[in-house]
Amino acid sequence: MIPCNFDYYRPESLQELGQAIREAPRPFQFLAGGTEIVTMAQAGEVAPKAVIDLKAIPACNKLAMENGRLHMGAALTLTQAATSGLFPLLGSVARRISDHTNQCTITLGGNICGTIAYREAILPLLLSEARAGFFRKGRVVEQKLADCFHGRLQREEETALLYLCVEQKYLSMPYVHVKKVKNEKIDYPLLTLAALKAPEGVRLAVSGLCSFPFLVECAALADPSRMPGQRAEAVIKSLPEQPRADSFASAAWRAFIMKQAVEDAIARLEGRGG
């Protein structure tokens, strides 16, 4: 059981969300799927005075094409994102996060904003230049996700993530998704790699390799005149930090499987050998 007591707010509109934020005792936490908050509260690692449940807010549950963009509410579960078929790369990534049962509870927003470092759901969104809608000081503010995600989603205090939007053109681009694990199929990643073949070239986003997920920034990656192996080497040299070393894998092993995965992804997306 959760040893602390807290108040529970379930707003059903943005106006009520603003009211809940004004009235809730501090500190409070936003609740979507709740898997992380409940787990941490049961372990005594967090003790909020209130939780604000976002799941009844229409903007947080929307899943629709509008004005050339796919609008995905932050309270959509990984299962909903996967079974909709609207964003195949996101669906592929979502199906490998945790297990099938937890995917029915874990939300897009929860996975992106959570404290667990992998945040794999962010990868397709970074690749597709997604925009994020926030509820900040009573207003909905939208900004490019890449501008406010640097390993973790940078949010002002008391700001809720409401939705994510992706332009339609990205939804049908060829993609590759690979998740490398040490033991069981359901496991934290040694490496999760998502790749997209955009008109200007291959894009990559990675989780599990370093201490945070990131979009690969390497000019050589999109250079078709270079062989995949050369481009993979260039990507390894452009990493934002050294690969992680832990009980699952050494940094050298992670770098090795990353290089192999990048080379393979490029070859598959460009229809060529290594």
Binding site: Y8, L31, T35, V51, D99, T101, C104, T105
Partner: peptide, 22 residues
Amino acid sequence: CGACTVVMDGLPVKSCLVLACA
């Protein structure tokens, strides 16, 4: 572990991670 699994609105969920009021 999944020993607490129930079905909620047609989908399996782990009831140890769901707040009763939610």
